[in-house]
């Protein structure tokens, strides 16, 4: 099956190696410069645990929201007779290419205290979103949702529709077929999308700091804590970065079947 190995052409080898170096060397520097001896002390700081708990918690809730809302949207895109499907898909993709800080400004204009929806919301219920963990979750969901929708839509398109058709001819309602046939079929796609969403939510910075502000234990997630620590205590920033790197590697391990496996 496999052809005999041949030396790759230098034209491809050189930029390829350079690309790999560009991706790997910064992380290597992070490990080299890590204040290993001070690490246990730095990581025991209550502020670190606080930021990590907040980050994992909000990212988990955001991922849950993504699955809850994103799977139905993906199904609509892949299976329903949606008018203007191409436009809808393009709209779903926008947050993916939009700078997150722009997303934060947009969320503020919609849900801030003077926002299009935020102002009547406060007038009616007295609730305001900015500066709450809910705002963090919302910002993270905004940036992470497209990852899930696109992953699940791809899985739905790749799934064999004959199973669903057979189930339908046997008298299953569309909801029953979706629940018992479609969902199990695309479960790996949903899982991969969820992991990607979680990773994206965990790294969210721009939309969060713009829309949710920054307060320890409430809205100051790991990336925000790292950025702030860099102002005065670079060692603490490196320690926090290591924790986030570790979590990211764990996420990658969760994806290994998909991305690191040799096909």
């Amino acid at each position: 099956m496999r052809r005999t190995r041949r030396r790759p052409p230098a034209v491809l080898l050189a930029p390829g190696v350079l690309a790999l170096a560009l991706l790997v060397l910064p992380l290597l520097a992070l490990l080299l410069r890590a204040p290993w001896s001070a690490l246990p002390r730095l990581l025991r700081e209550p502020a670190v645990g606080e930021a990590l708990r907040l980050s994992l918690g909000t990212a988990a809730v955001a991922t849950g929201l993504c699955v809850l809302l994103g799977v139905p949207l993906a199904w609509l895109l892949a299976r329903a007779d949606l008018p203007g499907r191409a436009v809808v898909r393009a709209l779903v993709t926008v947050p993916l290419v939009l700078p997150p800080v722009v997303g934060g400004v947009a969320l503020l204009l919609l849900l801030g205290r003077r926002g299009v929806v935020g102002r009547p919301l406060e007038a009616l219920t007295g609730l305001t979103l900015p500066f709450t963990p809910a705002a963090v979750v919302l910002a993270e969901t905004f940036v992470a949702l497209p990852f899930l929708v696109l992953a699940v839509e791809g899985a739905l398109r790749g799934a064999d529709r004959r199973y669903e058709e057979v189930a339908a001819t046997l008298g299953g309602t569309r909801w029953h077929v979706f629940r018992t046939v479609t969902l199990p079929l695309v479960a790996p796609g949903v899982a991969a999308g969820a992991v990607l969403s979680f990773a994206r939510a965990l790294g969210e910075f721009g939309a969060t700091i713009t829309f949710a502000g920054s307060f320890p234990g409430r809205t100051q997630t790991m990336p925000l804590a790292i950025y702030l620590a860099l102002e005065t205590d670079p060692e603490a920033a490196i320690a926090l970065s290591l924790v986030l790197l570790l979590v990211s590697v764990a996420v990658l391990a969760g994806l290994r079947e998909r991305w690191t496996a040799v096909r």
């Binding site: 500066f131 700091i209 100051q220």
Partner: peptide, 20 residues
């Protein structure tokens, strides 16, 4: 009992300006 700790003084000013 602040609700947000901003990274520089102009970020605080912006939060006031926008009425947040």
């Amino acid at each position: 009992r602040p609700d947000t700790l901003e990274q520089d003084v102009r970020a605080v000013l912006t939060k006031v300006r926008t009425g947040e």
